[in-house]
Amino acid sequence: MELHEIPEAFQSKLRLVIISMLITGDKTFSELKSITKATDGNLSVQLTKLEEWGYVSITKTFVLKKSHTVAALTERGKCDFEAYVKLLSDLITVKEGE
């Protein structure tokens, strides 16, 4: 990944936090909400965007008649996230070396 190729998914802080959370495993909607501190609407919009871009898969089930949403990072999401973190680390190392 190059600097001019950074996907839109990583250009918003909230989306970056969501992806960073999902790298440690699947999370429920309430778990995502408790760490991101985002509103239901905003979180829902960002998750839908990430799903459209193929970074996140969303599963909706019903537990005791209550809707239960679980978000997981896809293979593509994981690869791009790792490439993005590597790009950030490389950038910092190069700048600090100058």
Binding site: V17, S20, M21
Partner: peptide, 11 residues
């Protein structure tokens, strides 16, 4: 990078 590391640690 700090956001990424902090979030991973918290979650």
């Amino acid at each position: 990078l700090r956001i990424v590391n902090d979030t991973i640690k918290k979650s």
